[in-house]
Lab assay of single mutants.
Amino acid sequence: NQASVVANTLIPINTALTLVMMRSEVVTPVGIPAEDIPRLVSMTVNRAVPLGTTLMPDMVKGYA
């Protein structure tokens, strides 16, 4: 099973992502692959992402 990116904290809308905000976890449904974490750093989220939420491609500006 592939690990996905999961919010390690509440990420407010329009926040630039940092490494400490994200962790990898095997979850269903599958979200952004964990190997993309380095690429996500400094990208911003377009909605509030609660703790434990899987990051989906449409949640990160410029990812999809």
Rank of each mutant, 00 (worst) to 15 (best):
I32K: 00
Q2E: 14
K61T: 15
T54D: 00
Y63I: 05
A34Q: 06
V49H: 02
P29F: 03
P12L: 07
L40S: 00
G31F: 03
A64K: 04
M59R: 03
N8F: 04
T9E: 13
T44C: 05
A16Y: 12
V6R: 04
N8R: 11
P33K: 07
R39S: 15
K61E: 15
R23Y: 05
A48N: 12
T9V: 12
S4R: 01
M56S: 15
G52L: 03
M56V: 10
G52S: 07
M43T: 05
V5S: 03
V30D: 07
E35V: 13
A48K: 10
G31H: 02
V6W: 02
P12Q: 10
P50M: 10
P33M: 08
A7N: 01
G31M: 02
P29D: 06
I13H: 09
V5G: 02
A3R: 15
T18V: 07
M22D: 01
V41Y: 04
V41E: 06
V26N: 13
L10P: 13
T44I: 10
N8C: 06
D36N: 13
V20K: 12
A16E: 08
G52H: 09
R47W: 07
V20E: 11
I32Y: 01
I13K: 11
D36W: 11
V60N: 02
R47M: 10
I13E: 15
A7M: 04
S42H: 13
N1K: 12
L17K: 00
G52M: 05
L10R: 07
T9G: 09
S42R: 09
A7C: 04
L19D: 08
P57R: 09
N14T: 06
N8Q: 13
T18R: 12
P50F: 09
V27W: 03
V5H: 01
G62Y: 10
P57H: 08
L19I: 08
T53N: 12
I32D: 01
P12C: 04
M22H: 01
A64N: 10
V5M: 01
T53Y: 07
A48Q: 13
M22P: 00
N46R: 08
A64C: 05
V30Q: 15
V45H: 00
L51N: 12
D58N: 14
